[in-house]
């Protein structure tokens, strides 16, 4: 893969950014996320995390199932603060 290939589209993180982190010894999804911001954008890694996991597995010569994944955090998709603030319907649900 060429260094210029964009892996995380939300944060504009390239394969080169991720390769450098791997070569420095950061070989978990959490570390790569924290160092590069890959997976921290609007889609929260729904697009790029599998690609990065694949590349970590290849780099570490491990199977994907052996690799720890990141915690999935709420919300499932972006929610406007105005929508959140207007929700007072606890009792009704």
């Amino acid at each position: 893969m060429k260094d210029e290939v964009i892996i995380c589209r939300c944060e504009d993180i390239t394969w080169g950014d991720i390769r450098k982190a791997l070569e420095k010894g950061y070989t978990t999804l959490d570390e790569i996320k924290r160092i590069t911001r890959a997976g921290m954008g609007r889609c929260q890694g729904k697009t790029c995390q599998r690609i990065i996991l694949n590349e970590i597995a290849r780099f570490c010569r491990k199977k994907i199932d052996e690799l720890p994944i990141s915690t999935f955090r709420p919300p499932t998709k972006p929610v406007k603060l105005g929508t959140l603030a207007g929700d007072n319907d606890d009792q009704k649900c």
Partner: peptide, 30 residues
């Protein structure tokens, strides 16, 4: 853990202080 109550109360507090943030979306809480 993350709670829904926190996200709602935070949104209520901050949209009262900076109203134009109503149009900005939360992407993650922790």
């Amino acid at each position: 853990g993350s709670s829904w109550q926190f996200a709602r109360e935070m949104a209520q507090k901050i949209t009262a202080v900076v109203p134009l943030l109503k149009e900005v979306s939360m992407v993650r809480q922790w």
